[in-house]
Amino acid sequence: MCSLVCSQKILTGIDADEQLAGYSCHCAHFLTHGLEGLNKEIEMELGQISSRNLGHDDRGISDHGKEARFPFLDENVVSFLNSLPVWEKANLTSPCGIGEKLILPLAAVELASLLLPKWAMQFGSRIAKMEKNNEKAYDKCGRLQIISLENLSVEN
């Protein structure tokens, strides 16, 4: 039963845009009103999430038989994101569509480097398993030797 219930849950990124200056209107707001105006806009949008966004988002997801999880509405996440200045969450001096929610890909890269085990490329990709099992790392690849000999005869 748990696997059925667990497979019905959806992790969403809903409301990340409001907190991380992710909408194109945030870029325009920054250009016309500066950081102070943008901060007020984000604060106003955060105040409206529960009444404006959350209800219809949850109904839309549950209409498909899924149960939503909203990590960007976790109290600790909201507190942390609110503690950061907006320029650490987004680079709105970049062209619109590029600098919004900049903290997310940076965090993903950091998490991946911390959580994933380190492997040499040939071991991590398991390419060695696709070759002959009796080959050793110090063996010369016969296919490459043939190509090299063919190239030498063509060049001479």
Rank of each mutant, 00 (worst) to 15 (best):
M1H: 11
L4N: 09
Q8T: 09
L11T: 04
T12H: 03
D15Y: 08
D15F: 06
E18V: 01
L20V: 00
A21E: 00
G22P: 00
G22R: 00
S24L: 06
S24D: 04
S24G: 05
C25D: 13
H26W: 01
H26A: 03
H26K: 03
C27N: 07
A28T: 15
H29F: 09
H29T: 15
T32D: 11
T32Y: 07
H33S: 14
E36M: 03
G37W: 00
L38E: 00
L38I: 00
N39D: 08
K40E: 07
E41L: 10
I42V: 15
E43P: 07
M44T: 15
M44E: 15
E45I: 12
L46C: 11
G47R: 02
Q48K: 09
I49V: 06
S50D: 10
S50I: 06
R52F: 12
H56Y: 09
D58K: 11
R59K: 06
R59L: 05
S62N: 09
H64K: 07
H64I: 07
G65N: 02
E67I: 03
E67V: 07
A68M: 06
A68G: 04
R69C: 11
F70G: 02
P71Q: 05
D74W: 08
N76D: 15
V77K: 05
V77G: 07
V78D: 03
V78R: 10
S79F: 01
S79N: 10
S79V: 02
S79E: 08
F80V: 09
S83L: 02
S83N: 08
V86P: 01
E88F: 05
A90F: 02
N91G: 04
N91I: 02
L92E: 01
L92K: 02
S94C: 12
I98A: 10
I98Y: 09
G99T: 02
G99E: 03
K101V: 04
L102V: 03
I103V: 09
I103A: 04
I103N: 00
P105M: 05
P105W: 03
A108R: 04
S113A: 15
L114N: 13
L116N: 05
L116M: 08
P117I: 01
K118N: 13
K118E: 10
K118I: 06
M121Y: 15
Q122K: 10
F123W: 13
F123Q: 14
F123G: 09
G124V: 00
G124T: 00
S125Q: 03
S125R: 04
S125P: 04
R126L: 14
R126Y: 08
I127V: 15
K129N: 12
K129M: 11
M130N: 12
E131Y: 14
N133V: 13
E135P: 06
E135W: 15
E135G: 12
K136I: 07
Y138C: 13
Y138R: 12
D139G: 08
D139C: 13
K140A: 14
L144V: 08
Q145C: 08
I147C: 05
I147Q: 10
I147E: 06
L149C: 13
N151H: 13
N151I: 10
L152E: 12
S153W: 05
V154G: 08
V154S: 15
